[in-house]
């Protein structure tokens, strides 16, 4: 009646039903869903690094990054690790089942902007952290000539935990990509590197002065990777990390994803490292 808020969004909380077209088992606890809109809706436009809220009927909603090609009109792709009741239920879904989708939300990897043009790219992922980086990698491959050297450094706990194994192998076979993979713990069949992923960053293969770095993985891995990049001479404002926090709403009003003054759902998940560096060093923020 008096000064009232404007801009109420009637669809703010409402997921759209999408139908599962394909399910691909990736790892023992990780799977990929390919979804199509029901009732012939349009494909979802998103930017690399953004996420959706996925709703399992009656069970709950979880934030999951988008893993497909941002420029293809193909299905909506989500790679999910089953770690709780909602994602466990999603693992049991089969083609034809329906999921609710709300999104896309959040900030993106700066791969299509002017700041990436002509730069070397260092893409560093740990574990399932490769999933939010896949759209950025696909974008880079599509526009390979716009970038200088492109390095993909990936670390997994064990060889059995290597995500997108076939794709990594294909990328590794390309002459215009430097792909290196390491595991924390080797098994007998592993002839590759053993050690943490920041080590790969220390190995170089890029020009630190003209590098843009994209990092996604556990917080401690991102901290150490950033430190290794800084030690090589990469500028802090050219390092980007993707943060994870509890999320209930994805639209900046449930309060759960706060990280200092930032709402990870809205201001992140992708942050410039220099913006959150001080916050990342505080325990329990």
């Amino acid at each position: 009646m008096n000064a009232t808020p404007g801009g109420a969004d009637p669809a703010l909380w409402l997921p759209e039903p999408w139908r599962i077209e394909r399910v691909r088992r990736e790892l023992s606890d990780t799977f990929t869903l390919e979804l199509q809109p029901t009732a012939g809706g349009a494909p979802l436009r998103f930017l690399p690094g953004q996420f959706n809220m996925l709703y399992a009927f009656g069970l709950g909603e979880v934030p999951i990054s988008i893993s497909g090609d941002p420029e293809a009109d193909g299905p909506l792709v989500h790679t999910i690790r089953a770690v709780g009741p909602v994602t466990e239920a999603m693992r049991r879904l089969v083609p034809g089942d329906v999921l609710g989708v709300r999104g896309p939300f959040g900030s993106c990897w700066p791969v299509s902007g002017a700041e990436a043009e002509g730069c070397d790219l260092v893409i560093v992922a740990g574990g399932v952290g490769l999933a939010p980086l896949r759209p950025a990698i696909l974008h880079v491959l599509r526009h390979r000539q716009r970038f200088g050297q492109v390095c993909i450094f990936y670390g997994a706990r064990t060889p059995a935990d290597i995500l997108y194994r076939h794709e990594l192998r294909r990328w590794r076979g390309q002459f215009d990509l430097l792909v290196d993979v390491t595991v924390d713990r080797a098994t007998q069949d592993w002839a590759g590197r053993v050690g943490v992923v920041p080590r790969l960053v220390e190995g170089g293969g890029y020009d630190p002065q003209h590098t843009l770095a994209l990092v996604c993985g556990p917080e401690i891995m991102m901290r150490h990777t950033a430190r290794a990049l800084l030690a090589r001479g990469v500028r802090r404002e050219r390092i980007h990390v993707s943060m994870e926090r509890n999320m209930k709403c994805a639209v900046g009003l449930c309060g759960h994803c706060q990280f200092g003054p930032h709402f990870v759902c809205r201001d992140g998940p992708v942050f410039r490292f220099d913006v959150i560096e001080a916050l990342m060093t505080v325990d329990g923020l």
Binding site: P5, G6, D9, L253
Partner: peptide, 23 residues
């Protein structure tokens, strides 16, 4: 109330109730 108006500026239920309220 003014502070929560900003927080819930896009929340449909909040906005509907707020507009129906005389202060």
């Amino acid at each position: 109330i003014a502070i929560q108006d900003r927080i819930f500026a896009h929340d449909p239920a909040y906005c509907a109730r707020r507009e129906a309220t005389l202060i």
